[in-house]
């Protein structure tokens, strides 16, 4: 511990002349949530690695991050020392809330971590596979109730995409929104609903104990240690990652942007950050710069289409 402490001081002292940036990270959510945890983990890692000497976290909660992002874009314009944490949930929230400030108004830096959506049924259910579930959905969409997170959120979007891919009218899905993962999970375990959908992490321990049956996962390829087919290989072209990212304010010069990118790159590859990802159980889905911006644009247009199809965005 002591050596570690010394080492970090030395590292900090060495790094100081080159990277004097004192970052302020905005978590556009209340303390305790996923974005707040991401921001605070970033804070710890940036300081520990000596990338930044003094990092502050500011919480601006509200409306799926749209309040935070609006404030960030207007107040931090051109400030190369400000960062904001965000995620895929923002994409949907901006569209459903018709937020005036969008992700186009900030400078996306990198995707840091992400989770895939998992579709489960209670162990007592008669449904054994994703195909059976889709058959039931085709037969009577109203009879298949889905428990998941808030309306218009990632889980709802995933169900909409799946219905569409299966040729079922997305407006007909019977989606039951719950406020938190815990409540939705209780409803699934209690067989109150037909199926459940959420990030795999929410279901992992239940699946392992055999209380839930995992039918499919929304990743591109099969995930090691997860015993379920992807939706894609089951014939439904749905790939959805609930990612978290970090972005910079608008109006940065190319040099400033490059400096922030370099800092984040250094962070993402650092031992501290890798350790954080491991202890928090976050998958490393790092994607930076132009590649990330391209992916982001794709996500936004796909989300807009499906939210219109479900009828949440007009």
């Amino acid at each position: 511990m002591k050596q570690f402490f010394l080492a970090s001081i030395v590292a900090g002292a060495l790094a100081l002349p080159a990277y004097a940036a004192d970052y302020t990270i905005m978590a556009p959510a209340a303390p305790g949530g996923g974005w707040d945890q991401t921001a605070r983990s970033l804070q710890a890692a940036l300081q520990e690695e000596g990338i930044s000497g003094n990092v502050q976290v500011v919480n601006v909660p509200g409306a799926g991050g749209t309040i935070g992002i609006a404030q960030f874009a207007s107040q931090q314009k051109g400030n190369p020392n400000a960062l904001i944490v965000g995620g895929y949930v923002m994409v949907g929230a901006i569209l459903t809330n018709q937020a005036p400030v969008t992700l186009a108004d900030v400078t996306p830096i990198a995707r840091l971590t992400g989770e895939y959506e998992a579709i489960v049924v209670p162990a007592s259910s008669e449904i054994e596979s994703i195909d059976q579930l889709i058959e039931a959905l085709k037969a009577d969409p109203g009879a298949v109730s889905w428990a998941g997170g808030s309306a218009g959120g990632t889980d709802h979007i995933a169900v909409g995409l799946l219905a569409k891919a299966a040729g079922v009218d997305p407006t007909k899905i019977n989606y039951i929104a719950y406020s938190g993962g815990g409540e939705a999970l209780a409803a699934i375990l209690g067989s109150q609903v037909t199926a459940g959908i959420s990030s795999y992490g929410e279901f992992q321990s239940q699946v392992e104990s055999g209380a839930l049956r995992l039918l499919a996962i929304s990743s591109d390829e099969r995930i090691e240690g997860v015993d379920a087919p992807t939706l894609k290989e089951s014939g439904y072209d749905v790939v959805l990652q609930n990612w978290r990212m970090v972005a910079a304010p608008p109006g940065l010069t190319d040099e400033q942007k490059a400096a922030v990118l370099a800092d984040v790159e250094k962070l993402a590859t650092s031992a501290t950050w890798q350790e954080t990802l491991k202890t928090k159980g976050w998958a490393d889905t790092y994607l930076a710069g132009d590649a990330f911006e391209e992916q982001l644009a794709k996500d936004i247009s796909a989300t807009e289409t499906i939210l219109k199809d479900i009828g949440l965005v007009k």
């Binding site: 305790g32 945890q37 209780a186 992992q204 321990s205 239940q206």
Partner: peptide, 27 residues
């Protein structure tokens, strides 16, 4: 069950994870 049913419980869950404790039926 690993169900965080209140805001407090959700934060406790985050707290447990740093001790390598994964709340759930097998805990």
């Amino acid at each position: 069950l690993g169900l965080p049913t209140t805001a407090t419980a959700a934060i406790m869950l985050a707290g447990f994870q740093q001790y390598g404790l994964q709340p759930g039926p097998l805990l």
